[in-house]
Design a binder for these strands. Structure first.
Lengths: 238, 238, 238, 238
DNA sequence: AATGAATGAGCGTTCATTCAT
DNA sequence: TATGAATGAACGCTCATTCAT
């Protein structure tokens, strides 16, 4: 039942227009208020045409999520590529992420909606990004560039930071700037202000650093040596 | 048209039952699949009764969000209260937040949906939590307990961490444990595993610490001693 | 999920109007060309009202079939009641059946469509009628009124006769009379012509009679005196 | 607009494949759930090709009915051919009809659906079969093989018997045997059980016989001499 | 002769909301 | 205060049919 892939160049164009339009419409009005008619009208094709290429609303949504995922990861990977070390890589990665968020409001809105619309797609999105992070962090830890942090935990921590900072200084700023539903346009595109960005990166840099701070009162049953990878060498702190 | 507040005790009870039921239903099936009938049935009142107390679906949703917000903040404040210092306060706050998330899946689901359903309620939720954070962090910075971090930025950073770690280790764990749509029940309630929790708190502790790292130039370019110099000067921390 | 039965007198009226309208519309245009809108418009109620009382098109169809079934059986039972013997009962039953068919074109059309629309309802219809027949025929056989025929087989044979004779002389005649889609109206109502009726009843009477024809071997092969011997011994009948 | 007949051998093959496929699909899923795509896919041709040979769905349906009609009549005629007398002819004809029904579920389903899909085709089907019957019965009556029955009435009576007995013991048996939607296959093919068959044929034999049973109470306004062909010679009964 | 991309009227169904009781 | 019958706009989706290739 999955609709056949288009067999002609014309079909390919139509399909692509539909995905683009869907991204636009989902971002603009949200999954639930998006209707197939809105999508097809935006794409300039007939309603029935939609069902030539997609099984339904959910299917095109998943495809849009996948598409966006591919694109953010590409943007982040590209930005990170030339970085001389992990911290610079993080700076570049966050920069790229915020820029992408600013320029593609769709990413943010659509991914967050996916949580309730298509949990599988949602998990896929985060899982793939996490994988990239883990790879980089594992290498950085091995080379001593960063401290002895658990790459998986650190990955989620970093994503959390990116997500809420992006929400506050990119999304909200944009919303405040336009103050209404008017199309944002390139001029309205907001990026995280430099000082905030530096604050954030400072936090991250310290958080990842090979530093351990002394903490004595083990309440709650959790002791410093609960896990194996928080090793003793952390004691040579001040 | 805004509905009058109930004038009788019976009316008060009815209204309260409706809010409770709405929270339950919104959490279970999401805003869009929740219907007024479902809510009134759950509350055991007639359909028409709903409109005696609320203007519509959106209005009761806002009220549910507000209610939840009050409750998380209460839980976190209570947990934080007795903490001897900021770091312990954070530990206690995060602990409380994760517990609340585990025990009230509604909070998580409903708040995240609010972003698209009722942006105003959504902002209100975060803004109020941020206010609490800022207060605590400002005091901690003044007393030298933490480094010279911008309280607002730190607040958002911390919330981001809490949100995604909670998503990964509380929400996903619960989903994995129940493996289906069965009611989670108290037994299935998942908390963040101790080692992960410690990792997270370690990251936060370092991130908030008064560590001076030598990187000061705000631009994203490269600069002289980027590479390994994080370790040495970190010693002059508190 | 089966819709609740109406709780008020008004609701009962609405529901009944819907069933009537559905019968009318299904009979007029057939199940597939009948739409819920047509039914609700005919009933003079809003579209949504339909779904207050029925789960869908199929469900109301089943109900219409059941209703019709009840009514034919009632008509036939009533007609048969006073009959002095089985043969008279059959005459009266067939008469009643043809009259019902003529006056309620719905019965015929709807039941026949049920075969493909709702096989279960279709079988139910025939099964119930068969049960009535079997009862009567079993008694008649026991009392020697009719020959040693298998009541079940005879029941189906009789129904087959009724159905196709009804089709030919009631339905086709009516169709021919109106010659178009115009409403038939009572004047156009056709009954089986008396001579045809008598022919049919004659056939049935002989078929059911305690005639022993000499052909007894059940196999489909050929046997000794196949040819002409039917005539002679038939005389020793009642 | 009626499509041209194919002008090439290839065209002829394509057209024939389409008719075959249509028969299959109509039988499998019914007229209304059959779609042109299903038919063309089954035939292995492109969708557009269909409209090269047929004006639409209805047109190919009519052709399928006509085709089936030709085939049943052929089967029955062939079976009847060698029969030494009318009764044997009936036995052989019914046998053939039941077998055809069992082996070609399509016949049964499609013809019955035709009643609502294409009334003209439906009438044509019965009319043609009736013609065959009338011919045989007229001859039989002339030769005294059967009683003085009206050939037309008898024809419909016989068809009615065949149809409902076939429905009950062929179609329903098959449905019961397969118990689901699985393809019946030759092994599942059901025929009317021998004893039922004999009962049915006994009934028919008596019904057609030159016997008249006395019937005195002319209620209902119909007297023995209502029609001309129920002639007086019927009086020499017991 | 053959194809399949494109179309849109029309379907069954849902649900927030109103209002007479 | 409480009810639930009634409504209809709007949705997702299907499919017979056309037509450019």
């Amino acid at each position: 039942m999955p609709r056949a892939a288009p067999r002609t160049a014309r079909g390919n164009r139509t399909r692509a227009r539909l995905v683009e339009s869907a991204e636009q419409v989902f971002a603009d009005v949200g999954y639930h208020d998006a209707s197939i008619v809105k999508i097809t009208e935006h794409a300039g094709v007939g309603l029935g045409t939609f069902y030539l290429y997609f099984d339904g609303k959910l299917e095109i949504f998943d495809e849009v999520v996948e598409d966006l995922n591919r694109r953010v990861r590409h943007a982040m990977a590209e930005a990170t590529e030339a970085a001389p070390n992990r911290i610079e890589a993080e700076r570049a990665g966050f920069r790229a992420f915020f820029r992408f968020t600013a320029e593609h409001p769709a990413l943010y809105r659509i991914v967050r909606q996916a949580e309730f619309v298509s949990p599988a797609a949602f998990r896929m999105h985060y899982t793939r990004i996490v994988e990239g992070y883990i790879e980089g962090l594992t290498a950085a830890r091995a080379s001593g560039e960063i401290g002895d942090v658990d790459p998986t935990v650190a990955a989620w921590v970093l994503m959390g930071i990116g997500e809420l900072v992006g929400m506050r200084w990119v999304r909200w700023a944009a919303a405040g700037a336009m103050d209404s539903d008017s199309e944002p346009g390139p001029a309205d595109t907001m990026d995280v202000p430099p000082d905030v960005f530096d604050q954030v990166m400072g936090f991250i840099q310290r958080g990842l650093a090979a530093v351990a701070l002394d903490r004595q009162d083990p309440q709650d049953g959790h002791h410093p040596h609960d896990t194996d990878d928080r090793s003793d060498d952390r004691t040579e702190q001040t």
